[in-house]
Simulated assay, not measured.
Amino acid sequence: MTQWQLLQGDILLGELSEYGCDQPFFLAHFTPGPGWESAMGLFEAWAALRGPDPDGSRTVAVMKPLRDLGLTLAPVGGGQPVLQVFRNCTLRIDGSEARLRY
Rank of each mutant, 00 (worst) to 15 (best):
T2G: 01
P52L: 04
L91F: 07
L71K: 09
M40N: 05
T2W: 04
G14K: 06
V76D: 04
P32K: 01
L83K: 03
T2H: 07
T2V: 15
L16C: 10
A47Q: 08
V85G: 08
P81Q: 00
L7A: 11
P75C: 00
Q5D: 11
A47T: 13
F43R: 04
P34Y: 00
G41C: 12
G41E: 08
G33Y: 02
M63F: 07
S17Q: 09
Y102R: 01
I11E: 12
S17C: 07
L42F: 02
G95K: 03
L27C: 05
P75S: 00
V76M: 05
G51H: 09
G79S: 02
G35D: 05
L7N: 08
T90C: 11
Y102P: 09
C21N: 12
G77S: 02
G78I: 14
G95W: 02
Q84I: 08
M40R: 12
G56E: 01
L16D: 04
E15R: 13
S57M: 08
F30I: 06
Y19Q: 07
V62W: 04
R101H: 07
E37W: 08
L73H: 06
A98D: 02
G35N: 03
T90R: 08
M1S: 15
L69F: 03
E15Q: 14
G14N: 09
G77E: 00
R50N: 09
G70Y: 04
F30W: 04
G79N: 04
G79R: 02
D22Y: 04
A28I: 00
G78F: 11
H29N: 14
L16W: 05
T90A: 14
P65Y: 02
G51E: 04
L66E: 05
Q8V: 10
I93F: 06
W36N: 07
E44T: 10
L42M: 13
Q8I: 05
E37G: 13
F25W: 13
Q3V: 09
A45V: 14
L7Y: 07
K64P: 03
G35E: 04
L7E: 05
Y19T: 14
N88G: 12
D22I: 14
V62S: 09
D68Y: 05
N88H: 13
A61Q: 10
G78A: 12
C89L: 01
D68S: 11
W36A: 10
T59I: 11
D68F: 07
G77W: 00
V85A: 09
D53A: 01
M63L: 12
V60Y: 04
G78T: 13
P54S: 00
E15S: 15
G95A: 05
M63A: 12
A47L: 15
Q84V: 15
M1W: 12
Y19A: 11
T90F: 10
Q84T: 12
G41S: 10
G79V: 06
L91S: 06
G35I: 02
L16G: 09
F26N: 14
D94Q: 06
E44W: 03
F30A: 11
L12T: 15
H29L: 15
P81K: 00
L27P: 02
L66D: 06
L16E: 01
R101A: 09
Q3T: 13
W4N: 03
Q80H: 06
L71G: 02
M40G: 06
M63T: 12
R101C: 11
G78C: 13
M1K: 11
F30G: 11
C89N: 00
F25E: 10
F30V: 13
V62N: 10
E44K: 11
V82Q: 09
G78D: 05
